[in-house]
Design a protein around this nucleic acid. Structure first.
Lengths: 264, 264
DNA sequence: ACTTAATTTGCACGTTTATGCATGTTCAGT
DNA sequence: ACTGAACATGCATAAACGTGCAAATTAAGT
């Protein structure tokens, strides 16, 4: 059965995504744990913002965005983002904090999709002044709140799960762009190969992004280190900076430093 | 069935969105709870400002958050129950409802920005199948929820107020597109000139959109009729269809019909 | 392997919430 | 004004909830 708490959490998220709701009582019997445990699970997931608790269970948190209310300060986390890594929010925050420190006024910045980059977008100071180019819907939506930021969106077909645009037009537009920094959401990074990912069309976009930027910054929680995916985004030598939630002096990061990558 | 209070609330809101009214008695039987419970639900939703309670049930509350639209102050004038059905529907919703009726499966649809078009996007059936191209951030965000819709976003600089993209790239991408219908948010429309607007860069995009579509549909509340703005979007003869909240036989719409424009 | 610390879980307890029913009141339409 | 339906209010009950605590499990260090 599902013995680990994490498995239950995943199960609950899946269930909510499928049915838009869960009942504490039902979960208790199906997962064979007490309702108290279920309630604790729901509380934890709710604290992460992944679900919304209600009396009797929990429901999908449908924080919608509309024209009347785009000042919405509450976090907009699309569903499919959650199954990637909800449990490491504090990691993402640490990473985002470091990433923001790289920003200089009047920079031209490329931001890829992913929850960490969304976190980064949220943490950009309200008075930051610069140009930001992205292909990620929620990130763009977040950034329009910044008065002094010019936001450009890269057009193309929208992947409903990742909420990023992909395709020929994105890549074409990127060819006409010269950015100072590019923040790449990273599924896997390895000292030898570099940044790799699983979806071919997303990889093509990430690749084009990295080529259009002076500095390529990989934002990656430590569990992505030394892992591999089928498709290469950015070869190792072209990754300028690596940001993880770890201390830069951590032994695990040593190989990257020796390889010439800056580590934050 | 619907065990959570939250689900009932959602059901009630959906029901009101679709029919503009709900009956306590009907909800009681359909949701299999006592009328008291229904009344409590309605009270809570009413306290949140989501609906307006009336004797027998509840209706849509018309206090638009939109500052520009004070014409709906008629909401405070008491009216009989039958009239309520007519008046409780906001202009935008009536328009959106008519617009949705134009959709055919497998169409390629262009949707411009604006609150009315957002309302349209919200009302597209969840099982609609087709391709939708837009330059409006909230509309795209709404549409990704539709499993069978391919959403394409037109990239460019984002106008923070209108939340649409504009500029050369948008127009360039539009040139490579052939759509069946184009829904244009309309600030002003006149029998002689056609659709006009105030912002030059937005106008350029709207113009390009209209040229890329077989049918050009203007969505415009009646107060936009017979008004003018400095820049021409679409000349009168190129407007295929006009949708307002009025009855198509209304005298005010006669000139458009005589001019060869379909009126819904 | 053994011990210790930390986490997770279930249970007991009292508290809150949700719901239906009974009561009397208000409403709307003849 | 009369009448039945819709309503508000108070109350009872069961389910869901939070909390503290102890047992059980897991993780970590030696």
């Amino acid at each position: 059965m599902l013995k680990l708490k994490e498995e239950r959490h995943q199960f609950i998220l899946d269930e909510i995504r499928a049915n838009n709701k869960v009942l504490s009582s039902e979960l208790s019997t199906r997962l064979k744990v007490s309702e108290d445990t279920i309630r604790r699970d729901l509380r934890e997931l709710s604290d992460l913002g992944a679900i919304r608790r209600v009396h009797g269970g929990a429901v999908k948190n449908n924080n919608e965005i509309n024209l009347e209310d785009h000042s919405d300060s509450s976090a907009y986390i699309p569903f499919s983002y959650e199954d990637r890594e909800v449990y490491s929010k504090s990691k993402k925050e640490k990473i985002a904090e470091k990433a923001v420190s790289l920003l200089r006024d009047d920079d031209v910045i490329l931001i890829d999709g992913g929850t960490t980059n969304l976190e980064l977008a949220k943490r950009i100071p309200k008075d930051y002044k610069g140009t930001i180019i992205t292909n990620c819907l929620p990130i763009a939506t977040k950034l329009v709140e910044h008065r002094f930021v010019d936001v450009y969106f890269l057009g193309g077909r929208i992947l409903p799960n990742a909420l990023v645009t992909v395709g020929h037009s994105v890549i074409q537009e990127l060819k006409e762009i010269r950015a100072d920094i590019c923040f790449l959401g990273t599924r896997s990074i390895d000292v030898q190969r570099g940044i790799t990912d699983i979806d071919r069309v997303e990889v093509e976009v990430k690749m084009a992004m990295s080529k259009s930027a002076e500095n390529v910054v990989s934002v990656a929680s430590s569990d992505k280190l030394f892992t591999n995916q089928p498709f290469l985004c950015v070869s190792s030598k072209n990754v300028t900076t690596l940001i993880t939630e770890l201390d830069p002096n951590e032994a695990a990061l040593r190989p990257f430093v020796e390889n010439g990558t800056k580590v934050l």
